[in-house]
C-alpha cells in the first residue's frame, strides 16, 4: 500500500481518486447553488438543510480538506519531478496531441487553489466582505440569508470577474482532468478514449456555463 504514495503510478492514482471526489463535489455544489434561480426561498432553504446536517457537514469538510491537500501536494511534487526530468528544451517543438489545458494543469491547479482560499474566506468564513455575511443577515423566515450575500457579492463586477476567471481555470483543469482520471484508473481502452475525451470536454464546458450563469444572472439583474 505504501507504493500508492511513492510510486509514479501510485501517486497518479491518488491524484485521480482525489480529483474524482472533488469533481463530484463540484457537481454537487453547482446543483445546490442553482437553487438561487428559484429565489431566496430556494437557496436559503438549501443552506439551512446543509447546516442542519451538523457533524456530517464537518466530516465532509475534513474529507474535502484532505483531498485538496493530497491533490495539491502530489500535483506539485509530480510537476517538480517532471520539470527535472526534462531540463533542456527543444529549439523547435511541435505539440501533436497535448493541449493547452493538459500542459497548464499545474497553473490552473494553483489558480484554483488560490481562488478556493479566497472563496472560502469570502462566503464560508466571512472574513472578506463581512458586511454581506449571511451570519449577520437573516431572511423573513429567520434563516441565514445566503441569497442576499451572493447577490450583493456578485453585484460587484470585480468579484464576478475574479469568479469567472477562476471558473475558466476550473474548466481547463477539468477539460484535461476528467479524461485523465479515467486513463489513470485504467478505465480506458482503444474505443473508449476518444469518447471519454469528448465527454470530459463537454462536462467541463457545462460545469463552466452552470457556474458562470450565477454571477452572469446577478450582473444582468435577472436574479436580484
Amino acid at each position: 500500500m505504501l507504493l500508492l504514495f511513492k510510486n509514479t503510478v501510485g501517486r497518479k492514482i491518488v491524484m485521480a481518486v482525489t480529483g474524482l471526489l472533488m469533481f463530484g463535489f463540484i457537481i454537487g455544489h453547482l446543483l445546490g447553488n442553482t437553487t438561487i434561480f428559484t429565489g431566496p426561498d430556494g437557496i436559503n432553504a438549501y443552506a439551512e438543510k446543509l447546516r442542519n446536517l451538523g457533524p456530517l457537514i464537518w466530516i465532509m469538510r475534513v474529507i474535502m480538506l484532505v483531498m485538496v491537500s493530497l491533490h495539491v501536494f502530489f500535483g506539485v511534487q509530480i510537476t517538480l519531478e517532471d520539470n527535472a526530468a526534462k531540463p533542456g528544451s527543444y529549439a523547435m517543438k511541435r505539440n501533436l496531441r497535448s493541449t493547452f489545458a493538459s500542459r497548464s494543469m499545474i497553473w490552473t491547479g494553483l489558480l484554483i487553489a488560490g481562488y478556493l482560499i479566497y472563496h472560502l474566506l469570502q462566503f464560508t468564513f466571512h472574513v472578506i466582505n463581512p458586511e454581506i455575511s449571511s451570519m449577520k443577515n437573516f431572511d423573513s423566515l429567520g434563516r441565514h440569508d445566503v441569497f442576499s450575500m451572493l447577490v450583493h457579492g456578485f453585484q460587484s463586477v470585480l468579484v464576478s470577474s475574479v469568479y469567472i476567471a477562476a471558473m475558466i481555470a476550473v474548466a481547463l483543469h477539468l477539460a484535461h482532468g476528467i479524461q485523465s482520471l479515467f486513463q489513470t484508473l485504467g478505465l480506458n481502452n482503444d474505443s473508449s478514449l476518444p469518447a471519454i475525451e469528448k465527454a470530459g470536454l463537454i462536462t467541463a464546458v457545462i460545469l463552466f456555463l452552470g457556474y458562470v450563469s450565477i454571477p452572469a444572472a446577478i450582473l444582468a439583474g435577472i436574479v436580484k
Binding site: 510510486n7 503510478v9 509530480i78 519531478e81 501533436l96 497535448s98
Partner: peptide, 17 residues
C-alpha cells in the same frame, strides 16, 4: 515503474504526445 523513476524519467500526465 520503480526502475523507471530511478532512472530519472518523469511521470505520465496523460498528454498522449
Amino acid at each position: 515503474t520503480e526502475a523507471m523513476m530511478k532512472e530519472g524519467f518523469g511521470n505520465c500526465s496523460n498528454h498522449y504526445e
